[in-house]
Design a protein around this nucleic acid. Structure first.
Lengths: 239, 239
DNA sequence: CGCGTTCTTGACTGCTTTCAAAGATGGTGG
DNA sequence: CCACCATCTTTGAAAGCAGTCAAGAACGCG
């Protein structure tokens, strides 16, 4: 069976080059390194643990297609998704000695990974990795503000605007429209809500013609208004 | 006026060495570098902006005493504290080119900073900085889970356990007891609650003899039970 | 001792959860 | 092609946790 992603127009291999090129000036050699690394692909079914908390961080890898997440499980069954990982994102890029994973990472859909070329080989790749890590950090801080101070509808809007921006960076989103494969239950674990309330929130947003999720696609009906509602600002990590 | 901290038994200069030594094997030279850097201190009153979102990240510095935070302000006045910064923590240590700050950083008490010795000078310092950054990251992820899935009382407990652990690393906490200079209103902005509800939550926890905040001190009355309530696990970032 | 900040309290509102069950959807095999 | 099954979405009623508003008490500083 071919690993064909229904959520991406871009071929998996170009997703990575698109995103990393947006983060640093990659040379033709850098792109060749990425292409070479992508020749060996690791296919992971949905709902599989990719990284286990407390275990040594393995070799760095790149998400070619599919969605994953960092997640925390509580003893009583509660679950919180700490961050979403989408195509073009890096996993396990870590600067310090003998690092161990601080969270579990789990696939949410089928995920295809390739190894990330070692950073030392290229100045531009090193920069791209560092910038990617900075974006990751910024998104997590954004998530803190989202969970701490926004209402259910605001959390949903803010989250979708962020995903739209991040997927666009990898060339995987149209204007106001992108593939969003998460179920309402998973979305609830991202947003710190119950699935029932996610459902009601989505109905309300659709009724107001602001935002619509259907058939695995997200539609931002009125992006300007959405941006205004949550005071959304694009992620910027370098000048 | 001497910058004397009433919240610390350790002298400001040793706080840094204590913490960084716990993160990597510092040599006598490393400690000399830290002591030298600490000769020039920068004193910042409470409620001052230390770093502005969107501005280039300045030179790296170390908190010798006092508390600060990363914070997000919303257009309508809501405010969320994204992470707390306590003595021994680093500010503005950043690996990628031309970095700009993704959040504001504000002093919560009087804060004394010194410059952080450049990482390139010493392998151990480089490691310590990287480990410190990893701890920072782990605490922020923890904060996401806290805000997303814990009740008010659980958030309070989890936050106090984390602060106890972090301050102990810098030699600034006794067993089950540490200086906690934040007002209930500030705590509310950390925990994503209102100050009224923080007050009621604290009363309830004190009544149950679990946790007590009074006179700028936090007392963990029954640490084992607190740990159990929130399924608290110590921060581990390297093997 | 006086003033501003912080803490405390009460009554009321409301957003979100809980619990339960019924409908839709999509993929699979007969 | 359709029945079937698991998964996902939708709905309703009731309860609960946290927020809002307002005002008084306590605290700490000068």
């Amino acid at each position: 069976m071919m690993p064909r992603s229904t959520h991406s127009k871009a071929a998996p291999t170009t997703v990575v080059a698109t995103r990393l090129s947006a983060l640093a000036q990659l040379t033709a050699e850098d792109e060749a390194l990425l292409r070479h690394a992508a020749e060996i692909q690791h296919r992971i079914p949905a709902r599989r643990e990719i990284v286990a908390e407390g275990e040594p961080v393995g070799s760095a890898s790149i998400v070619l297609s599919g969605w994953a997440c960092r997640v925390r499980h509580f003893a009583d069954g509660r679950r919180q998704i700490l961050s979403l990982i989408v195509p073009g994102d890096l996993i396990g890029v870590c600067a310090h000695p003998r690092p161990i994973a601080t969270t579990n990472i789990v696939s949410l859909t089928t995920v295809v990974l390739s190894a990330a070329p070692p950073a030392g080989l290229s100045r531009a790749l090193t920069d791209a990795y560092a910038t990617s890590a900075a974006i990751d950090q910024a998104c997590i801080l954004r998530h803190v503000a989202r969970l701490g101070r926004l209402s259910a509808a605001e959390r949903m809007i803010d989250c979708m605007l962020e995903l739209h921006e991040r997927l666009r960076l990898a060339g995987m989103a149209d204007v106001g429209r992108f593939a969003m494969p998460l179920t309402q239950e998973t979305l609830a674990d991202v947003l710190g809500l119950t699935s029932v309330h996610v459902n009601r929130t989505l109905q309300s947003l659709r009724k107001d013609d602001l935002l619509e999720l259907r058939g695995g696609m997200a539609h931002l009906r009125n992006e300007a208004m959405l941006v205004d509602i949550v005071d959304y600002r694009p992620v910027r990590v370098s000048g």
